[in-house]
Design a protein around this nucleic acid. Sequence first.
DNA 1: GGCCGGCTATGACCGCTGTCATAGTAGCGA
DNA 2: TCGCTACTATGACAGCGGTCATAGCCGGCC
Lengths: 198, 198
Amino acid sequence: MTESGRGPRERMVFSAAQLIRRDGVGATGMRDVAAHAGAPRGSLQHYFPDGKEQLVNEAVGWAGRYAGKRVARFLAGLDEPTPSGLFAAMAAQWTDEYEAEGFAGGCPVAAATVDCAAMGPSTREAAAAAFATWRAPVAEALTGMGVPTARADALATLMISTLEGAILMARAEQDVRPLVTAVRELGPLLDAAVVSSA
Amino acid sequence: MTESGRGPRERMVFSAAQLIRRDGVGATGMRDVAAHAGAPRGSLQHYFPDGKEQLVNEAVGWAGRYAGKRVARFLAGLDEPTPSGLFAAMAAQWTDEYEAEGFAGGCPVAAATVDCAAMGPSTREAAAAAFATWRAPVAEALTGMGVPTARADALATLMISTLEGAILMARAEQDVRPLVTAVRELGPLLDAAVVSSA
DNA sequence: GGCCGGCTATGACCGCTGTCATAGTAGCGA
DNA sequence: TCGCTACTATGACAGCGGTCATAGCCGGCC
């Protein structure tokens, strides 16, 4: 999350996601993005000729792909994969960040969804696509753990919903309590969905 | 949610909440609030001498009190009160609105939390207070249904987290599916927390 | 009447934003 | 050297935001 992408274009998309998730879409200026990325201001209209909306949409898409890839890494880090373990790992990413760096940041996809009125309707579609890109690997992981296919997608939706809401409440309260509560209370429900193959 | 308060001040707070939950904090202008409330522009600086931050904070506080009061009404509308029934009623408020009026609006408290950087830190505190005002009656209702006091607060947090996240995803996807999924999957867990008094 | 405080009305100010226009530079193939 | 393309640099512009200043209305009250 901290390494800077190679090209200046990637850096700007990355920086946009960083600033959006901290300040919101409306409060994030194009000049700020360029400055944060260490990129020249003139490159903005070169790489993103459709303006802010394009930049925001790409940032949201990047965030969705990033979240999706993280799922695979979480799975690889679990000794014995369980739904509750995966959910705990997803939440731990946020508790770790909040305890280490404070509660400044949220989810960029959530920020884009809330501020979608400021942008065109394409940003809302980008957010929906980002959620889908995130949900798919989660559902796939659940099926791989023995959750019936019919329920896997529903549980993946539930996991992401609860996580997003807990992130929101944690930011508001400046306390990771909603996140740890979600993990503790939702874990048994998730594990109970695994059909024993023994 | 549609009746207009008596005084112009109340109407402006109400209108601010309405516009914030639809467009976000940053995209909601003071002039828009006055126009939406049918109030003179000059009244803004009269009733809210501390400017936009005060208006936003009061709108967030109003939303929190509104959500808290709704809990009591939901309880009164349930034949036999169960945790899952309460959660379903809370979610139904949103599915009904979305199916009737479209996915334009979200939760104003969530919008304020995401855009808290645009305002001062007091807005974040107002959002935290709003969540607390919302969570308390939910937890109280759960204890009244037989949920142990120790778990009631955790489950109330979980309910609000999941609901907020589902609202977010539903708006992004323009589909109530996340909301109905949350109700269906979380209901059994909530009811299982009731200790049988028989 | 004369006064005053609550409220309204309106215009100006300044800062900021996204966007455009224009010009400049670096690298590179011919 | 030329020309071309990719990229950078900078300034201007129009619009909108919140906020302040000033002035007007209007009811009650001595």
